[in-house]
């Protein structure tokens, strides 16, 4: 996996999402899932997307790969700009979900790993076979060469005895092994962006630590950018450079991980950080719970989505208007009236 594209500099812009809006058509009507999301990601950086259920964190990234189900609508005016390895930049929303262009992007530029690796492998082919296929789809190599590359990759993601594993079927591997194998498939095309959708959620803690370490190592080695989606604040603190906090389809706060964890501005972020039990720090005390329930996407609150549960709720303001994005520092933005002048 040679990094031939030396002129691609870490820190150059890679992905720019502007005003992304996605809705789903259902029997109950049109349900907004992502509502005006802006993300920009630099080469080699890791962006963490944190959010609870219904926050739209997965939907936004599926939109990047045009992998949304048929019932989804990407609204006009949404823009997802991606800078390819060859220096050209493309608008991903222009591509149809089955077009050759987007397939080239999916295979060569952006890869995806999921929470449940079992579902991304075909149960009837060996692991090695599927990795080889992925390798040969992007590189012009013979079967023998591909096998060599595949075995090399299996060992690179820390799978012991890769020659034996190569011949095994997905069900013969444990959850952690499968996740590693999936990472190796995802990285076989040497992508410049890896989207990891809750990759460690189904794993045990000790295995999660292994996989997180592996991802960090591979990023250092291969230089790809990562969008890491999770609901686990501990994991995000350990892996992300920048963090976007999502709530009900929108980003409420965005900044470096230090901004988010040490200087949170949005009431939701602050609450969330106080709501998680921390080892040794919540001695006998109560956790600060966020009042109420996450509203169903069908009954989105008016104004600021969070106003129904917010401790800083200002009547006639938060429930009427939508707060604008406010810059706290060059890299730290928040969407809350508390900071609007």
């Amino acid at each position: 996996m040679e990094t031939a594209e030396n002129y691609l500099v870490k820190g150059d812009p890679l992905l720019e999402i502007k005003d992304l809006k996605v809705s789903f058509k259902t029997d109950e009507g049109i349900i907004p899932a992502v509502d005006g999301v802006n993300i920009s990601l630099k080469r080699g950086h890791t962006l963490g997307l944190v959010g609870e259920s219904g926050s739209g964190k997965s939907v936004s990234t599926w939109a990047v790969l045009q992998l949304l189900p048929k019932s989804a609508i990407i609204h006009k005016g949404s823009s997802i700009k991606f800078h390819c390895k060859d220096g050209e930049s493309v608008e991903l929303t222009d591509f149809k979900s089955k077009s050759r262009e987007i397939r080239n992007i999916r295979g060569g530029e952006i890869s995806l790993i999921f929470q449940e690796p079992m579902s991304s492998f075909s149960p009837v082919y060996t692991v090695g076979n599927q990795i080889m296929e992925a390798v040969r789809a992007h590189r012009d190599v013979s079967k023998e060469e591909a096998e060599g590359i595949a075995i090399d990759m299996l060992s690179r993601v820390g799978i012991p005895n890769p020659k034996r594993r190569f011949k095994q079927y997905p069900f013969e591997l444990s959850g952690g092994m499968r996740q590693r194998a999936m990472i190796s498939v995802a990285l076989s095309s040497n992508p410049s962006l890896l989207i990891a959708d809750e990759p460690t959620t189904a794993l045990d803690v000790t295995i999660q630590a292994q996989v997180l370490n592996l991802m960090k190592e591979l990023q250092e080695e291969l230089g790809m950018a990562i969008i890491f989606i999770t609901h686990n604040l501990g994991v995000i603190a350990q892996i992300a450079d920048e963090i976007a906090v999502m709530y009900l389809g929108g980003i409420v706060e965005q900044g470096t991980r230090h901004d988010i964890f040490h200087n949170p501005k949005h009431p939701y972020t602050m609450n969330l950080l106080r709501a998680i039990p921390r080892l040794g720090k919540t001695d006998g005390g109560r956790l600060v719970a966020i009042e109420g329930q996450i509203p169903s996407p069908m009954e989105r609150p008016s104004g600021c989505c969070f106003h129904t549960r917010c401790s800083e709720y200002m009547p006639d303001r938060c429930n009427v208007n939508i707060p604008q994005i406010t810059q706290i520092s060059p890299e730290h933005t928040v969407r809350c009236f508390l900071y609007e002048s």
């Binding site: 005003d19 005006g36 005016g77 009954e299 989105r300 104004g303 939508i322 707060p323 994005i325 969407r335």
Partner: peptide, 18 residues
């Protein structure tokens, strides 16, 4: 980076809440 376009949508939803 503007959010003004969303506001119209939300106005209509509150009307049908009842």
């Amino acid at each position: 980076m503007s959010a003004s376009s969303i506001s119209t949508e939300n106005m209509s939803t509150s009307a049908v809440t009842a």
